[in-house]
Amino acid sequence: MASRFEDLLHPRPEGLYCPPGDFYIDPVRPVERALITHGHADHARPGHSHVMATGQTLDIMAIRYGADHARTTQPAEYGEIIDIGDVSVRFHPAGHVLGSAQIAVEWQGMRIVASGDYKPRPDPTCAAFEPVDCDVFITEATFALPVFRHPEAASEIARLLASLRRNPDRAHMIGAYSLGKAQRVIRLLRDAGYSEPIYIHGALEKLCTYYQSEGIDLGELKPATVANGEKGQFAGAVVLGPPSAFGEAWVRRFPDPLISFASGWMSIRQRARQRGVELPLIISDHADWDELIETIERISPQEVWVTHGREEALVRWCAMNDILARPLHMVGYEDEAD
């Protein structure tokens, strides 16, 4: 089903390629020219010659990979029109994490929006998602099944606070991805009136500091390192760490740890159980089912291209609603990351 839109963008093993502009969007392999939607490791990789992204995404890449992750970098302001050859591109907020953007690509009267990962609901730690009028909308499908309806994040935080009251002797260990989710959980806790120091694993430190330097107040953060004889001070404390740290010796230094995990996957009990999660928090940085279809209805593009996740269900929904849709079968994007 080749359409003329494919002359403007189409998938290649390296990533989404734009022939008239000779660039890739979120390439998974090193390329000459890359446009990056956001700083998560599966979208933003080191080793490209030239990288264009929002200033915040470039900062995040520099924090993660070092300032020399690319030969040259070029920041893009939200809303600024930038010409690359005959193509003009524009970055729009995606509401996913700090600095995240959708990239609109325009050429010969057609416009395609590669939305990267996005979330339409408000998030105090990043600019709000902006629907962009376009011919082709490229959407993710991480939570594209009608079983995924994320509750209000504030009500999940209320459950966390209730658990802290009920288990004042236990350290509450919250698994949260180090870019975006961790800072959002902390900010939500502050919004709910939690003013105690929050303890963070070393892997979160630089990004939390960066968020704070960008004006996102996270309150008092302390390193989650347990000195000898000080285990007791973590009773009833909130400790955040990356999910990978939960398999490590680090967890057991805390008093009777209560394992929690902040993720959209947590709406499925079996998942929570398999991971040994006692307190699942359904907090996601991706659109849920209702938000995916509302976004598509609102933009009402001529075509919908679906990247990673549960493509089948979203394509099925589009077919039922007479919207032309196809999966792109992109590889290299982490399905499980949220």
Binding site: I268, Q270, R310, R316
Partner: peptide, 23 residues
């Protein structure tokens, strides 16, 4: 709910009660 969407969801969740509760 559309049969096909239900089937995909049930496949994914694995438990009938949970699928119905969520969907």
């Amino acid at each position: 709910v559309d049969e096909e969407l239900f089937r995909l969801s049930y496949d994914y969740v694995g438990d009938l009660a949970e699928t119905i509760a969520l969907i």
